[in-house]
């Protein structure tokens, strides 16, 4: 079993690379959580503006947060926003896509129209309007839901296209002729064949949601008292850390965010390969 997995990963290096990057982050968070007190991610728990040293390996910021603790506490928070929003987006998107593509008709026109128009609109700006309209500052979970409000558009569009091509296949025809009901065909014939594709779409949606959440946070619309990666960058910008030469302040969140995006990206490419073996020709 293990050997089979290793052999497959050798054939699909993107999947391996993505998994390794994300696993490294998970290890960092888990082991770090055991060694470091997360409470130090709060302001005033360390001396201010120390460059990295043995005591504070990632340095400290101007409000006296231990940046190592901030990263350990913040990485899972940022990922949580991405996962909640990504799951909600792909969940809603899948349902809408199946309704649209399987039943067609007026419903299809409406759903496709909304998704098409919604996609041409700059998402971040709509999210800004939503975030500004809400009372008070957001919590991490509310943030995830705000991001999810647009996260279903892209999955709806792409999954619909996939279902449209699947529903004309022979085995679906056979199922229909043998008297299977619409929902049964969707769940037992179409869904299993779409699973790898749905997985790739999900990873993509998580990545997009994290990007959107970091964008909102950098603009100052994030959860002010949560030490997420995006909020750390907000404080970096707020305190002009770049001009002042406090390089350690932005280095850690930047490296982690780049690892998250690269990991998710390579995971999508790897999953795409499983979902669509025809891609192998292009590799």
């Amino acid at each position: 079993m293990m050997r089979g997995v290793v052999r497959y990963l050798r054939r699909n290096p993107s999947l391996a690379l993505g998994t390794v990057l994300l696993a490294a982050l998970a290890l960092f968070v888990v082991i770090g959580g055991m060694l470091v007190d997360i409470e130090d991610a709060r302001p005033l728990s360390a001396p201010t503006l120390r460059a990295p040293s043995w005591e504070y390996p990632f340095g400290t910021d101007r409000q006296g947060r231990d940046l190592l603790a901030v990263m350990i506490a913040g990485t899972p928070l940022t990922l949580r926003i991405g996962f909640i929003a990504g799951f909600l987006g792909v969940g809603i998107g899948t349902v809408l896509a199946f309704i649209a593509a399987y039943y067609r008709g007026l419903l299809d026109t409406v759903i496709r129209g909304i998704a098409d128009i919604g996609l041409t609109v700059p998402g971040l700006l709509v999210l800004i309007i939503i975030a500004v309209s809400l009372k008070g500052t957001l919590t991490v979970n509310q943030m995830a839901i705000v991001v999810a409000s647009l996260a279903w558009l892209y999955p709806t569009r792409t999954i619909r296209a996939q279902v449209l091509s699947l529903r004309e296949r022979g085995y679906v025809e056979v199922a229909r002729l043998s008297g299977m009901s619409g929902p049964a065909i969707i769940f037992f014939e179409l869904m299993p064949n779409l699973l790898p594709y749905l997985a790739a779409t999900l990873v993509n949606a998580v990545s997009a949601a994290i990007l959107a959440s970091i964008g909102l946070e950098v603009l100052g619309l994030g959860p002010i008292d949560a030490p997420t990666l995006g909020m750390t960058l907000y404080w970096v910008n707020f305190n002009a850390a770049m001009i002042n030469g406090w390089w350690w302040w932005w280095l850690a969140p930047t490296v982690i965010i780049v690892m998250v995006f690269l990991g998710l990206f390579f995971l999508t490419v790897g999953l795409d390969e499983i979902a669509n073996p025809r891609l192998r020709r292009t590799a």
Binding site: T120, P122, G123, L124, A212, G215, V218, N237
Partner: peptide
């Protein structure tokens, strides 16, 4: 390109801020 314009713009907003 037509589909990506929105994304590009969202990204550019943050570049301007930085």
């Amino acid at each position: 390109l037509a589909l990506a314009l929105g994304q590009i713009l969202s990204g550019a907003v943050l570049v301007e801020v930085i």
